[in-house]
Simulated scan of single mutants.
Amino acid sequence: MKKNQFVIVGLGRFGSSLGRELIQLGYEVLGVDKDEEVVQEMSDVLTYTVSADCTDEETLRSIGVRNFDVGVVAIGDDIQASILTTILLKDLGVKTVVAKALDELHGRVLEKIGVDRVIYPERDMGIRVAHQLVSPNLLDYIELSKDYTIAELVVTGKMHGKTLSDLDLRARFGCSIVAINKPNGIIIAPTATDVLHERDVMVVIGTNEQIEQFEEAATR
């Protein structure tokens, strides 16, 4: 199957970090920024780089953005440029457009113009770090929606040697363990007979409240 190709508009901290990771994952990435110095710095990292003004429709058309599967608008502080670039990417036929929002108002505007996904890097990172700071067994925290979360929790000594059947998470708390990361590999969709060992990492899905209740019970 052909892999998606990405165009990232704006090669600041977020855009360049995203581009590096996509390259590491084996994808082709076109990076676009109006700053020639930034473009030059990223030219050896990304598949292609172009210095261009992405608020100009003809410029975007000439660099062939319509041929890319996913467009990411990662423009920094210029909200007007972010919105205009997003509209142009949609109009030019980019299949999926993702845009970085600086705040909730910017995000609402992006949603109204048809963005497929709005990303709030600073806000989301702040939420994740806050949860990690107050929960010593929480390694990572990703909010799927306003109610549902995926969390990575370390198996405590209290759970060591117990099977998932012993824990009975779904009946007791309503959440589910969807994977277990062990030293010798990851178990995806573990069964009731899988045994937990101290320092294993559980990937748990549920509401925020369910996961909090499970974590409290696991550490008491």
Rank of each mutant, 00 (worst) to 15 (best):
1 M>R: 09
1 M>C: 05
1 M>G: 12
6 F>G: 00
8 I>F: 02
9 V>Y: 03
9 V>M: 11
10 G>P: 13
11 L>E: 03
13 R>S: 08
15 G>N: 10
15 G>K: 06
16 S>H: 10
18 L>N: 11
19 G>T: 12
21 E>Y: 08
23 I>K: 14
23 I>T: 14
24 Q>W: 08
26 G>A: 12
27 Y>K: 05
27 Y>F: 14
31 G>M: 08
32 V>F: 08
33 D>L: 04
33 D>A: 10
34 K>R: 12
36 E>G: 09
41 E>S: 11
44 D>G: 06
45 V>A: 07
51 S>Y: 04
52 A>V: 08
54 C>L: 04
58 E>N: 15
59 T>S: 07
64 G>L: 06
64 G>Q: 13
66 R>H: 15
67 N>Q: 15
68 F>M: 05
70 V>N: 03
70 V>S: 01
73 V>A: 11
73 V>S: 08
74 A>M: 02
75 I>S: 06
79 I>D: 08
79 I>E: 13
79 I>G: 10
83 I>M: 12
88 L>G: 15
88 L>D: 14
90 K>Y: 08
92 L>A: 05
92 L>S: 12
98 V>C: 03
100 K>N: 11
104 E>F: 07
105 L>I: 11
105 L>T: 12
105 L>E: 13
106 H>I: 09
106 H>K: 10
108 R>C: 08
109 V>T: 11
109 V>Q: 07
110 L>K: 14
111 E>H: 14
113 I>A: 11
113 I>V: 15
115 V>M: 09
115 V>N: 09
116 D>G: 11
119 I>P: 10
121 P>E: 13
121 P>L: 13
122 E>L: 13
123 R>M: 10
124 D>L: 09
126 G>H: 09
127 I>P: 02
129 V>A: 02
133 L>R: 01
133 L>E: 13
133 L>I: 15
135 S>V: 10
139 L>Y: 03
140 D>V: 00
142 I>S: 14
143 E>A: 06
144 L>S: 06
144 L>G: 03
145 S>K: 06
146 K>Q: 15
147 D>M: 12
152 E>Q: 02
152 E>C: 00
154 V>Q: 01
156 T>V: 03
156 T>M: 02
156 T>A: 02
159 M>P: 02
160 H>S: 04
161 G>F: 04
161 G>D: 04
162 K>R: 15
164 L>A: 09
167 L>D: 09
167 L>F: 07
168 D>I: 09
172 R>E: 02
172 R>K: 15
173 F>K: 00
177 I>C: 01
177 I>P: 00
178 V>K: 09
180 I>C: 05
181 N>D: 10
181 N>W: 12
182 K>F: 04
182 K>N: 05
183 P>G: 06
184 N>K: 10
186 I>W: 07
189 A>F: 12
193 T>H: 15
193 T>M: 13
194 D>R: 11
195 V>M: 07
197 H>E: 05
197 H>S: 12
198 E>W: 03
198 E>F: 12
198 E>N: 06
199 R>E: 14
200 D>H: 00
200 D>Q: 07
201 V>Y: 01
201 V>S: 01
201 V>G: 00
202 M>L: 14
202 M>G: 02
202 M>C: 11
204 V>L: 01
205 I>H: 02
205 I>M: 09
205 I>L: 11
208 N>Q: 06
209 E>W: 05
210 Q>M: 01
210 Q>P: 00
210 Q>V: 00
212 E>I: 04
213 Q>M: 01
215 E>H: 03
218 A>N: 04
